[in-house]
């Protein structure tokens, strides 16, 4: 009744995308929080775009960018021999962009919330900016990091528009849970749609509850022994 293959694929996608967002979101958030560049607002606006843009619009442009008509698409084809559109890696790129604000914004907000005098103290004690980041800024931003990870993970689990535009609907490759549900409704398989939707709902809820439960503890900072 439930198509486990789509669940497995969706989970894989969400783990990969939220991990990538964590790794690449950190430097972007750091830059947004600490840069004094005059055009910083432009970057902030671009990062926030996916929140307001219809997923189909974003998906459409990602599809164009991945396809053989864009310089990036041509470069990829010359490198690998095939296009990124309608593949799992293409799906990862689309989902990454779509969930970018959901990780970068909580990260940047928690970095900005760290007392600047603590960072200054770290520097006067001889720490490089990198060490100050890892020893002071990051540990004091744990709640924001956890929130950003949870939001981007859950957001990727449930996305639909971007996946459909960029990935299409290839079983085992790009068919995610939300598309599976849509297909079942189209085919009047309401029982199957219901079972799948319920499972996704419970899964996402349990995951978020665990994350926010752990996060609540993270607010009470304990000394590192």
């Amino acid at each position: 009744m439930i198509n486990w293959q789509t669940f497995w694929l969706t989970l894989q996608l969400a783990v990969i995308v939220s991990s990538a967002l964590f790794l690449l979101g950190l430097p972007i958030a750091y830059w947004i929080a600490f840069s004094r560049a005059r055009w910083k607002f432009m970057v902030e606006a671009i990062v926030a775009l996916p929140i307001v843009l219809p997923p189909t619009v974003l998906g459409f442009y990602v599809l164009v960018a991945l396809g053989p008509h864009s310089p990036f698409g041509r470069w990829w084809i010359s490198l690998t021999g095939h296009t990124l559109a309608f593949t799992f890696p293409g799906l990862v790129i689309g989902s990454f962009l779509y969930s970018l604000p959901f990780s970068v914004q909580p990260f940047a907000a928690s970095f900005s919330g760290v007392d600047r005098r603590l960072i200054a103290a770290s520097a006067t004690l001889g720490a490089s900016p990198l060490r100050s980041f890892f020893s002071v800024v990051l540990p004091l931003s744990v709640p924001g990091l956890v929130t950003g990870m949870a939001l981007s993970f859950a957001h990727t689990m449930g996305e639909f528009g971007v996946v459909l535009m960029v990935g299409g609907n290839i079983p085992g490759v790009t068919r995610t849970v939300s598309i599976d549900i849509y297909d079942r409704v189209q085919a009047s398989d309401y029982a199957g749609a219901n079972a799948t939707a319920l499972l996704l709902l419970v899964l996402c809820f349990v995951l978020l509850a665990i994350v926010y439960g752990a996060n609540r503890k993270a607010w009470a900072v304990k000394p590192v022994e």
Partner: peptide
């Protein structure tokens, strides 16, 4: 800043709240 060998105690003190007293003191000895 890190290369100036200037010790600076701020009005707010700016002790690292997530570290123990010992780790605070050893911070500049990395």
């Amino acid at each position: 800043v890190a290369k100036r060998r200037v010790g600076y105690v701020f009005q707010t003190l700016a002790l690292f709240p997530h570290l123990s007293v010992e780790r605070n003191v050893a911070y500049g000895l990395a």
